[in-house]
């Protein structure tokens, strides 16, 4: 494709082309272009939920798959996440004021005690938000008390714990033990995730689910929340 062919106005694209272009721009981490694309769709009276699902979440799914397959690496994924954040910035206030309640419920998420890493957690949080959860982000370095307090206050449908370090991931088991002791496990689902984790570890500590990446975590949480709603 020539340089001339690359130079076009987003507003000249029809809706389908524009959604695809937003997905491409998100993949390339182009903040301004994603922001502009979302603005155009809103001006065309697109529903904010549709923009979120079709353009942004759709784009991030591809990013998640390519990250999993070793095509994209962490820096590129972070650029993609930054672009999605731009689009979300436009959509969030509209979604918050939406008359139709599409919320899947609350998701309490936090990095465990001793760990200050939050890149993965933030990616998951953004995907959860995109999927329709109200995300309660506890931040980093959370002792068990923080999770307990947040559960009491927010009554989440899912609670998520994140860790990047092999030295801190065992603390997830400490939190789960405390939840067991208090008989709280029946009230919500517990998901765990983080670079060094795997399904075997999640099973060993008794977590309900292991999210191997941000997109998959959001899908699993959504599936659980819908099943709860249907009951």
């Amino acid at each position: 494709m020539s340089e001339q062919d690359d130079d076009f106005e987003l507003s000249d694209l029809d809706d389908k082309e524009l959604v695809e272009q937003i997905q491409d721009d998100l993949y390339d981490g182009l903040n301004d272009e994603v922001f502009e694309g979302v603005e155009i769709l809103l001006a065309r009276n697109w529903d904010a939920n549709d923009i979120l699902g079709d353009a942004l979440v759709g784009g991030m799914k591809v990013v998640g798959e390519d990250f999993r397959d070793g095509i994209l690496f962490v820096p590129e994924v972070l650029k993609c996440a930054g672009a999605m954040k731009q689009g979300m910035g436009l959509l969030r206030p509209i979604l918050a004021n939406s008359a139709i309640d599409l919320s899947l419920g609350k998701f309490v998420i936090g990095t465990v005690k001793g760990d200050i890493h939050d890149i993965g957690k933030n990616l998951v949080g953004m995907m959860l938000e995109g999927a329709g959860f109200e995300v309660i982000d506890l931040g980093i370095n959370n002792p068990v008390e923080n999770y307990l307090n947040a559960i009491d206050e927010h009554k989440p449908v899912v609670m998520g714990m994140s860790a990047l370090l092999t030295t801190t991931m065992p603390y997830m088991g400490v939190v789960l033990e405390e939840l067991d002791k208090r008989g709280m496990r029946k009230d919500f689902h517990v998901m765990v995730g983080g670079a060094p984790l795997n399904q075997e570890f999640a099973d060993a500590i008794g977590a309900d689910a292991y999210g191997r990446d941000a997109a998959r975590s959001a899908e699993m949480a959504s599936s659980h929340a819908r099943s709860v709603k249907a009951c």
Binding site: V74, P75, E76, L78, K79, G82, H117, I119
Partner: peptide, 18 residues
């Protein structure tokens, strides 16, 4: 390794808690 040569703006994303 962290892509900071290509995306220096990511420095705060990586190191904001350090």
């Amino acid at each position: 390794g962290l892509g900071l040569d290509r995306y220096p703006e990511l420095k705060d994303v990586y190191f904001k808690h350090y």
